[in-house]
Amino acid sequence: MFLADLHMHSTFSDGKLSIPELVDLYGQRGFGAIAITDHLCEDQTFLGKAAGYLKQTLTRATWPLYIEILRSEAERAWHQYRMVVIPGFELTKNSVSNHRSAHILAIGATEFMPANDDVLMLARQVRAQGALAIAAHPVSTRKVEKQTFHLWDRREELRAEFDAWEVASGPYIFDEVRESKLPVVASSDLHAPIQMTSWKTVFECERSQGAIMDAIRKQRLSYTFYRDPAGDREVVKNDDVTHAAFPLGSRYRADHLGNVAGA
């Protein structure tokens, strides 16, 4: 059994930590797997171009460095921490309207792909390269930030196109997703170390990329709230945590979850 975080950002987009720092952050806490998923924005829209100008997104130019650093850090993470590092990115379609905005995680993707197509085509392209398509924070994140409702608005149409939907992001759990019976994962959407205290996915499979991806497809997972033992910085601000449901396993409780990482 091990903890995994499948959604985080490095300095290749808008994260505060470099990829090696992310590896050490999670490796030192005993995590079994992480997926690094930097933003990959559209390059034909104003917001997408702005992200490119401000170096807040992966681009064709930064992609070769990104994938090479991920590859070498995955090797180091395995040898140093026995932690699996899965390559990926977050296809980022931002619009002024929250209902036209969508973020799609491509977990296990190693080929660059532009984010310009419709979300249905993007999900198919992600899966065509053997990766998982996961709907990122599809409902309100309860934070003052850009919201992305487009995937949720089209959830019936897209149900078969996505391998999972985020049921929690950061410290917040999404009751709408939990009650929808859609396949789920829980992640931190970590941009800075302070966000370590957040929801994570728990696996009981072999520690390998293939086994983890298979477990997500087959929904052999549970999720849990992880409280970062390294800091007392309390970032949880809503009551969801105290009555959180654990649909696939109830052995993890918020009051002792800090120990799970070492299991």
Binding site: S10, T11, L17, S18, I19, P20, T62, L65, Y66, I69
Partner: peptide, 11 residues
């Protein structure tokens, strides 16, 4: 330039 950028990305 890219070498410098790569080094920065490695922290």
């Amino acid at each position: 330039y890219i070498c410098g950028e790569a080094v920065r990305q490695l922290g």
